Computed example of a mutant assay.
Amino acid sequence: MTLTFPVLQEKTIKTSTFSNRYVLAPMSRASAGADGVPTENMAEYYAGFARGGYGLIITEGAFTDEKWAQCYSGQPGLVNDAQEMGWQRVVQAIKAEAGKVILQLIHAGAVSQHIMEPVAPSPVRPAGSMLHGYGHRQGAYDVPDELSLAQIEIIKRGFYQAALRAEAAGFDGVEIHCANGYLLDQFLTAETNLRQDQYGGTLENRIRLTQEIIREAQGATKSDFIVGVRLSQAKANIQDYFWPNGLADAKVIFQAVADAGADFIHLASEKEGYAVHSYTEAGENLTTYARDLTGLPVVANGGLHVVVDANELIASRKADFVSIGKTAMLNPDLPKRVAEGRELQEFTFDMFKYGVTIEAQQQWEGEQAALGPT
């Protein structure tokens, strides 16, 4: 018996129609080669989500230049021919399962755990500590160097060229990462952007770089190529952060990315999930506001693997898609399970017992299989 739910209905972004509203959220797996080339294991990993029925797959973030962008060891890039060919193999594996896939493009900025001399909008040490398990560097973040206007142009060119490479590799689109405390979010955030030029000061100036990147990616690629944007209030290193002016900030940010030509908005939530960080501190719902203000498709995120919650969001038009993160790792067939009324495997942090890579997960899964049912 196949069930029918709002979350299982088709939906279109631009000219692409997706078989359901389930999106694989981008998750850093640090499983590429030391040269940043995606591996055959990554191709099979992502193909598994297409086989499992996800309407759209958004891959982990690929770094966009060789000098400053890389976040951590084992991160894939998209800055040379070898990396492009590696991603092409990933795309081909997904397309062989009738899947659709978007590549996330990311620049670490000040929160790099790989670059020895990181760069950022301003020389402000990031709050918190480096993420455990990612890269060889741990402890407090470094004070970054302030980017010059010439260096900002290099960063913009990196995103532009990566979008072109993503299109050449066969991706259905790209997602520009302006969220979670990474470089474009550092520009967006007043505490980490002390600049006095066209990229600093007002919120309209602080979102400018993201706007320019969206416009250039749209201008460089074909008309049916999707260019979306990921936004968030909370950050990986500041999980209780909210936009200081609530809905007033949201209005500027959402309108700015829409005016730049974004094809969708993906609002990410950190540890506390959708119920907390897709709302302002005053309690206004941000995914609904983004849809109403811009008319763009909106992807909601944060603990939405519970089918009742996902259906409520779609049915009430608070969002158009739901992206699934940690729970997806143990349920690559989640959409099929939902359609067939089967229970999901509950997420456990124990799966990171051997590390955060795909290979570490496979080692843990093999161990669990050997132990048998509990």
Rank of each mutant, 00 (worst) to 15 (best):
Q211R: 15
L203F: 02
L183I: 05
Q211W: 02
L183R: 02
L188Y: 01
R195F: 11
T189S: 10
L183M: 12
T192W: 03
L203K: 06
D197K: 13
N205S: 13
R208V: 06
L183N: 02
G181R: 06
R206D: 11
T192D: 09
N205C: 11
N180C: 09
E191M: 04
Q186S: 04
G201K: 07
T192I: 03
Q186L: 10
R215G: 06
E191R: 13
Y182C: 03
D197Q: 14
N193S: 08
A179N: 01
I214W: 01
R206C: 09
F187V: 11
N193A: 08
I214N: 02
G201P: 06
D185R: 04
L184P: 08
G200T: 09
L194S: 12
A190D: 12
A179R: 01
T202C: 00
N205H: 15
Q198S: 05
G201L: 06
R195D: 05
D197Y: 14
E191V: 01
E191S: 15
G200A: 09
T210H: 08
T202R: 11
D185C: 07
D197I: 13
A190Q: 13
N193E: 12
E212L: 13
Q198K: 12
Q186G: 07
I214Y: 07
G200H: 11
N205F: 14
R215K: 15
Q198E: 12
L194F: 03
E191N: 10
E204D: 12
L183Y: 03
I214A: 05
Q196K: 14
E204R: 14
N180A: 10
R208Q: 10
L188N: 02
G200K: 12
D185E: 11
D185I: 08
L188W: 02
R206I: 04
D197P: 09
D185G: 04
R208M: 06
L184C: 07
D197H: 14
R195K: 10
Q196F: 08
G181C: 08
R208F: 08
Y182D: 03
R215N: 04
Q211K: 15
L209V: 12
D185Q: 13
G181H: 05
Q211F: 01
Q196M: 11
L184S: 02
T189N: 14
R208C: 05
N180S: 13
Q211Y: 00
A190L: 09
L203D: 01
R206V: 06
R195C: 08
Q186M: 07
G200P: 11
Q198N: 04
Q186Y: 09
L203N: 02
R215V: 10
N205V: 11
G201V: 05
C178V: 09
G201Y: 07
N180E: 15
N205G: 12
A190P: 00
Q198D: 05
L203R: 05
Y199K: 05
R195N: 07
C178D: 13
N180Q: 15
Q196P: 00
L194K: 15
L194P: 00
